[in-house]
């Protein structure tokens, strides 16, 4: 502990920093899972770690929580230097892993009480807290059923409850909605937003771009073990704010039509967007009627003209060069899509 008083992690600057990571690296065999990652999460902030499969999200989270050793770098949590001693701050953190790690042979209630006891809570206190969380998470009816028989969504909810049983000021969530159906995912996001409102610092990994956009205040894009960009969501979205996109559903989208549109609308970028779809993009608002008229003059029927709001997805694709759609599909091979609905 003596080391931390001399390190800069206890200087005044860091008082409102909950998690600070510098130069974090992890090598598995010849895979550089995490490669010199730096970031700082402010107290009370909901910080998103967004990246595709194998980007190094879980590896980073494991090093932060004491489940994996770091090869290089420093970690400080709530001003406590955890680089050498990962146990030093474990009483301050709650962890919700990507897969449930509760006991299938115990009931939901017993699992929560067991986890509470691991943090030194006394019997009366832990039973009350377990009941409270079971009610809050809509699991009161399943409280006395074996955890092994829970559905996937119920398991995830109980795992989150177990992660916050000791009311930790800092919470780590590893892909909390992956593999959960739309309704369940929405409920989980509401729970997370509620924790955030109550002041919990949250570090959340996800590969759902919309989820990150909706929940997080700041986001780090991680690709192949490196952070390619960290910023507030509003900042990330800034370059897309003055971009206007129209999407037409048409009876024909061949090259001639696309060219004719481009000529008629100087300053627009026009492109086919799959069969029967044309995308028009410009840096100023686009007038729809003249374009529809032009299309009709060319004998093309227009069944839909829709303005598309540029999303974080566009930013993500620009910054990382990764097709967002590919990332999502890749992940959902196993589960039912829990995408941000």
């Amino acid at each position: 502990m003596a080391a931390s008083t001399t390190s800069r992690s206890t200087t005044g600057l860091d008082l409102d920093i909950a998690i600070r990571v510098e130069g974090l690296s992890k090598l598995y065999g010849d895979v550089q899972a995490v490669d010199g990652v730096d970031f700082a999460v402010r107290r009370g902030e909901l910080f998103g770690f967004l990246g595709p499969n194998g980007a190094g999200k879980t590896s980073t989270l494991n090093m932060l929580t004491g489940l994996a050793r770091l090869d290089a770098g420093t970690i400080s949590i709530d001003g406590i230097d955890c680089t050498r001693n990962p146990k030093a701050a474990q009483h301050l953190i709650g962890v919700v892993p990507d897969e449930s790690n509760l006991y299938p042979e115990l009931t939901g209630f017993e699992n929560l009480c067991f986890c509470a006891a691991l943090y030194g809570m006394r019997r009366r206190e832990r039973e009350a807290r377990a009941r409270e969380l079971l009610a809050q998470f809509g699991l009161a009816e399943a409280a006395d059923r074996g955890f092994g028989g829970y559905s996937r969504g119920m398991k995830r909810k109980l795992t989150i409850a177990a992660g916050i049983i000791h009311d930790p000021p800092i919470l780590f969530l590893d892909e909390p909605t992956t593999g959960i159906d739309v309704a369940g995912a929405r409920q989980i996001r509401q729970l997370i937003a509620g924790l955030h409102d109550a002041g919990t610092t949250i570090f959340l990994t996800t590969h759902y771009i919309e989820e990150a956009e909706r929940l997080c205040e700041r986001i780090a894009f991680i690709v192949r073990g490196r952070i390619v960009r960290t910023d507030a969501v509003a900042e990330l979205m800034q370059p897309t704010r003055d971009r206007h996109v129209l999407l037409f559903a048409v009876s024909s989208s061949d090259a001639g039509i696309v060219e004719a549109l481009a000529e008629a609308c100087p300053g627009c970028r026009v492109a086919g967007a799959g069969p029967g779809r044309i995308r028009v993009e410009a840096d100023a608002p686009i007038l729809i009627a003249p374009l529809v008229r032009l299309l009709e003059e060319h004998g093309v029927e227009v069944t839909e003209a829709r303005q598309v709001r540029p999303s974080l997805e566009d930013v993500f694709v620009e910054v990382t060069g990764i097709e967002a759609g590919a990332m999502q599909k890749d992940k959902e091979k196993g589960g039912k899509g829990g995408g941000a609905a």
């Binding site: 929580t65 474990q90 962890v95 892993p97 449930s100 790690n101 299938p104 986890c115 691991l118 943090y119």
Partner: peptide, 15 residues
């Protein structure tokens, strides 16, 4: 193997 041991490793008690 069932990952429940991880839960124990996360607890603030010495190994």
């Amino acid at each position: 193997k069932g990952r429940t041991f991880e839960r124990l490793l996360l607890a603030p008690i010495s190994l």
